[in-house]
Computed example of a mutant assay.
Amino acid sequence: MSASGAGPAGDQISLDFGFATDRGLRRPLNEDALIAERHLFAVADGMGGHEAGEVASSICVATFARGQEAAGEWLSPDDLQEFMVDADRAIREAAGSRAGTTVSGAALVRQGDAPYWLVFNVGDSRTYLLSEDEFRQVTVDHSEVQEMVDNGEITAEQALTHPRRNVITRALGTGEDSDADFWMLPARPGDRLLVCSDGLTNEVSDSAIRDVVMSRTPPQIAVDDLLQAALRSGGRDNITLVIVDVKLEHDDDQFTDTAPRELIEDGMTKPRPEGSAE
């Protein structure tokens, strides 16, 4: 699928994207949900048992969709923060804190004359970015095992099989911490974005994911290849992913290597440090 719109100075912005969601081979319900519309791409992984997780993730993406419709063609960082707050409130009202959801993704935004990815994350769904031949995980998992890795208690390899690997420390709709992390990254021609639930990353290694993403097959084909890889590896959880390719017709000097100063000063280019005040 594709989307386009008038970019800075009237340039044409084109996004080509594919997506898929599957309940996997072990789960009776699919508690994941996604949005892939215009300039907003996100994956939500619900939790709470029975149908509660499905409700939470559905409310999250529906809130994002309504927010984008009301905001017009382009979103702002303030819009995304408002979506998070609204989704958290709506889930709590509907489920009484008995259900929650992760959400990770990115919005293409404009700051001055330059386009940026505003990446956001709550929980352990992930957003990866391939830019200028560098593939990396942008988001940082909000999970017990990630905290253990950060504290040097276990290795990243041990985290993959740790019995607490599915325990998350932040979520929308439940718990005491629903704050999102944000990153502002330059959007360049040739960028490829991957947003996914842990049903993919728990089954397929980062190196295998990187190989598919860097293969440069069309987004929907790459999505289907990764989905099948997760199913072949066991499909023990719901699997949801979105891949977005960026085609921006700008002069090279339209792109900068850092976010605008006002966003850096607002603390929106990096996650909240561990141990900081809530």
Rank of each mutant, 00 (worst) to 15 (best):
D124V: 03
S131E: 08
D79I: 07
P219C: 10
F83C: 10
R89L: 14
A95K: 14
S4V: 04
L80E: 02
S197E: 03
E147C: 11
L200K: 01
E134P: 00
I35L: 15
I35A: 10
G46I: 11
A222P: 11
A20E: 04
L25D: 02
A44I: 13
L160G: 04
P271D: 12
R136W: 05
L160H: 11
I168P: 01
A95R: 15
V55W: 11
D86W: 11
Y128K: 13
Q228D: 02
D11R: 15
E37P: 06
V204Q: 08
V122W: 02
D266S: 14
L34R: 14
R66M: 15
H39W: 10
P28E: 14
R26F: 01
Q220R: 12
E31V: 09
E262Y: 15
T201Y: 12
G5M: 05
P189K: 05
H250E: 12
N238C: 07
D113P: 15
L108A: 03
D45W: 02
P273G: 04
A208F: 08
V212S: 06
G67S: 08
A222T: 13
S125L: 04
Q12C: 08
V61L: 07
W117A: 07
V43E: 07
M1R: 12
G123N: 03
F120M: 05
M184N: 02
F64S: 09
D124I: 02
A56Q: 04
P115E: 01
A20T: 05
F19K: 14
G96W: 01
I221N: 10
G67T: 09
T269A: 03
D257S: 12
R27M: 10
V244A: 08
R261V: 15
E93R: 13
K247E: 10
V212C: 09
G48Q: 06
D237T: 07
A52D: 06
A99R: 09
T63S: 12
S97T: 13
R92V: 13
V138K: 04
Q158H: 04
E132Q: 15
V145A: 10
G24W: 00
